[in-house]
Simulated scan of single mutants.
Amino acid sequence: MHEHKLDQPAFGIALQRARRRLGLSQSTVATKVGLKQSTVSRIENGNVFQSSKVNELRAIIDDAAKEVDLEGVVANVANSPELRALVARILDGSMHS
């Protein structure tokens, strides 16, 4: 069976952006997935890839994407008077009447 080849530079850039978005250091990411900090640096620079750790590294990217999605929801509420009023009613408990 032929395995899909991962675009190492793009993956490295995505990992670096996600790590920064989550406020994580390379050392923290390395500890979470069982790598050395220098290996995380090399992955982010597109120089090396640890295929055995792809799922753990993708989870970090997914966590950052979820945070971005949540920020988008918050921004939509903040920019909409109708949504702000609805959230205020929900928080005040006035939706139960």
Results as ranks from 00 to 15, higher is better:
Arg19Asp: 03
Asn76Asp: 06
Arg84Asp: 00
Gly72Asn: 06
Ile13Tyr: 12
Gly12Val: 04
Ala10Met: 12
Asn47Ile: 00
Arg17Phe: 05
Val87Ser: 07
Val33Lys: 09
Val74Glu: 08
Ala64Lys: 12
Glu67Gln: 15
Val87Gly: 06
Ala10Ser: 13
Glu56Gln: 13
Ala14Gly: 06
Leu70Ala: 09
His96Gln: 09
Leu6Val: 07
Ala30Glu: 08
Val33His: 03
Ala14Pro: 10
Arg42Glu: 00
Gly46Gln: 04
Ala10Lys: 14
Ile61Lys: 11
Gln16Ala: 15
Asn79Leu: 01
Glu82Thr: 03
Ser25Glu: 03
Ser94Lys: 04
Leu6Thr: 10
Arg17Trp: 05
Leu70Met: 06
Val87His: 09
Val68Asn: 15
Gln26Arg: 15
Asn76Leu: 06
Ala78Lys: 15
Asp63Gly: 08
Thr39Asp: 10
Val29Trp: 09
Ile60Ala: 05
Ala65Cys: 05
Glu44Thr: 06
His4Tyr: 02
Asn47Arg: 11
Ser80Cys: 02
Leu83Gln: 14
Val54Ala: 12
Gln16Tyr: 10
Ser97Gln: 15
Arg89Met: 06
Ser80Met: 00
Glu3His: 11
Arg20Ser: 00
Asn45Trp: 00
Gln37Glu: 06
Arg42Gln: 02
Ile43Met: 04
Ser52Thr: 04
Lys5Ile: 01
Glu71Lys: 13
Arg20Pro: 03
Phe49Val: 07
Asn79Cys: 01
Arg17Thr: 07
Leu83Thr: 03
Phe11Thr: 08
Val74Thr: 08
Ser52Phe: 03
Pro81Arg: 05
Gly23Met: 04
Ala65Val: 03
Gly72Thr: 02
Val29Gly: 09
Glu82His: 07
Glu82Tyr: 05
Arg17Ser: 05
Pro81Asn: 01
Asp7Arg: 09
Glu82Phe: 08
Gly12Lys: 12
Lys32Asn: 07
Val29Gln: 10
Val29Pro: 14
Leu22His: 08
Leu70Lys: 12
Lys5Pro: 09
Leu15Arg: 11
Arg89Cys: 00
Gln8Val: 14
Asn47Leu: 00
Leu57Thr: 04
Ile43Lys: 13
Val29Thr: 14
Ala64Thr: 02
Ala88Glu: 06
Ser80Pro: 11
Ile60Asp: 00
Thr39Glu: 07
Leu70Val: 07
Met95His: 15
Ala30His: 14
Lys32Ser: 13
Val33Ser: 03
Glu3Pro: 11
Asn45Gln: 04
Gly34Arg: 10
Ser97Met: 10
Thr28Glu: 04
Asp7Met: 05
Val77Trp: 12
Leu91Trp: 12
Arg21Gly: 08
Leu57Asp: 00
Val68Ile: 13
Ile13Thr: 13
Arg19Asn: 13
Met1His: 03
Ile90Arg: 15
Ala30Arg: 14
Ala88Val: 02
Ser97Val: 10
Gly34Thr: 05
Val73Cys: 09
Ser80Ala: 01
Arg42Met: 01
Glu71Phe: 14
Leu70Asp: 04
Pro9Asp: 01
Arg58Met: 02
Gly23His: 06
Val54Thr: 12
Lys66Asn: 11
Gly23Asp: 01
Glu3Asp: 08
Leu86Ala: 01
Ala75Met: 07
Ser38Asn: 11
